[in-house]
Amino acid sequence: MHPIIHHPTVFKFGFLELTGFGLAVLMAFVIAQIVCQREFWRRGQNAEAEAMPDIVLAALIGTLVGAKTYYVALTGDPSAFFSRGGFVFWGGFIGAVALCYATIKYKKLSFLKIADVCGIGIAAGYAVGRTGCWAVGDDYGRPFNGFFATQFPEGAPPSTAAVMSQQFGVQFPAGTNMSDVIAVYPTQLYETLMGFVMFAILWRFRKHANLPGWLFGMYCIVAGIERFIVEFFRAKDDRLVMGFSTAQIIGIAILTIGVVLVAARTKRSGPLATA
C-alpha cells in the first residue's frame, strides 16, 4: 500500500499568500459564531446572540495568545512567539475561555448560559480548524504504514527520520537514512472526524432540560476523551506520567471538570432551564 504524499495548501493572489491553515482558522471562528448565534436565537436569548461578535473576537485573541504561550512554555523557546507554527489547542482553549469569561462578565451576561451554547460552536470550529493542520502538514502522528498512511515531505516540520528522531524521540533501526521521509498516522484527519462526532453529540443534546452549563460540561467530557484518544497516535516527545502526554493529562483534567459540571447542573425534569 503506497502512502499518500502530502503537499501544503497555499492560495496565492498576486503578492498576497493565504495558507490553508489560515483559511481554516478563519472559517473555524466564522462557523462557531454562526452556530452559536443561531442557537441563541432559537432559545430566544437575543442579548447573548448580539454579544457573540465581541465574544468571538475575545476567543480569537485568547486562542492566539494562549496557544503561543503554551507552546513557548512547552519548548522553552521565546522566539517561538514569532514563528508561524506552534499553535497548541489546549493553550488556545484556556486562553479563549479566560478572555471570553472576562468579556461576558464585562457585558453583565451569564457565563454558563453562553458557555452552554459555545460548546457546540467550539466543537464545530474545532472540526473545521483541524483541516488547517492537515493543510499545512503539522500535528501528524507516529510512523505508520497502513490505510491512509501519509508522508509530509514539506510538513511543518517535514516527517523525515531525522525530525522524527530529534524532535519526537522516535527510534529507527540502525542504518536508517535520516533524510528519508517517513509515512505516519494522519492524525489531523482523525481529529477532524472526531470533531464532527463531538459536534453531532452536542447538537443532539442542545435541547436538554438541564441547568445552564450542563451542555458545556458535556463538551468538556467529549473534548477530553477526543484528545486523550488521539494522543496515542500523535508524534510527541512529552510523555510524562505512565506514558501519558501533557495534552492527555490536561484532557483528563478537562474531562473531570466536565463530569463535575454535568453532575452539578443536571435537572431531572422540566423545560429548558433559564436560570
Rank of each mutant, 00 (worst) to 15 (best):
F81W: 07
K68A: 08
G92E: 08
E50H: 12
D77S: 12
P53K: 02
T63H: 06
G86H: 05
R42L: 07
M52C: 13
F87T: 08
G95M: 01
K68Q: 02
K68P: 10
A96V: 10
F87L: 15
I104C: 00
G95T: 00
G92S: 04
A80R: 06
F40M: 07
Q37L: 11
G44D: 04
A80S: 11
I104G: 01
F89Q: 13
Q45M: 15
G91E: 09
G85C: 00
D54V: 15
W41L: 14
S79Q: 07
L60N: 10
G95H: 02
G66P: 05
G86I: 02
E50D: 15
V97K: 01
L60T: 15
V65G: 05
G91W: 02
G44A: 02
I94G: 08
Q33R: 12
K68D: 06
Y101K: 02
Q37V: 14
G44V: 03
A80L: 12
Q37R: 12
G92Q: 04
A80H: 09
F82C: 10
A49V: 01
A59K: 01
G62M: 01
V88Y: 04
V65F: 00
D77M: 14
T69M: 02
C100N: 09
V35K: 02
Y70C: 10
V88W: 00
P78A: 07
V97H: 04
P78N: 08
I55S: 01
A102H: 04
L60H: 10
E50G: 09
S79D: 11
W41R: 15
K68F: 09
L64Q: 10
R42M: 08
V35L: 13
V56C: 12
Y70Q: 11
L99M: 02
V72Q: 00
A49C: 06
S83A: 13
C100T: 15
I104P: 01
A51E: 06
L99R: 00
Q37W: 13
Y101T: 13
R43G: 09
V65P: 03
G86S: 02
V88R: 02
G91P: 08
Q33T: 12
A32F: 05
S79H: 06
V97I: 13
K105P: 01
Q45Y: 15
A96W: 04
I61D: 01
C36T: 08
A73W: 10
V88T: 09
A51H: 03
E48I: 00
K68T: 06
R42C: 07
T75Y: 01
E48H: 04
R42G: 13
E50L: 09
A59C: 07
I61S: 03
D54E: 14
G85L: 06
F87N: 06
P78E: 09
A47M: 07
A73Y: 07
A102Q: 04
D77C: 14
I104A: 02
T103D: 05
G66S: 01
A51F: 07
S79R: 03
S83D: 09
K105W: 11
F82M: 12
I55P: 05
M52H: 05
L64D: 12
T63I: 10
W41M: 14
F89V: 14
F87I: 15
S79M: 13
A59P: 05
V35I: 13
G92R: 04
Q33S: 14
A32E: 05
V72G: 00
F89M: 14
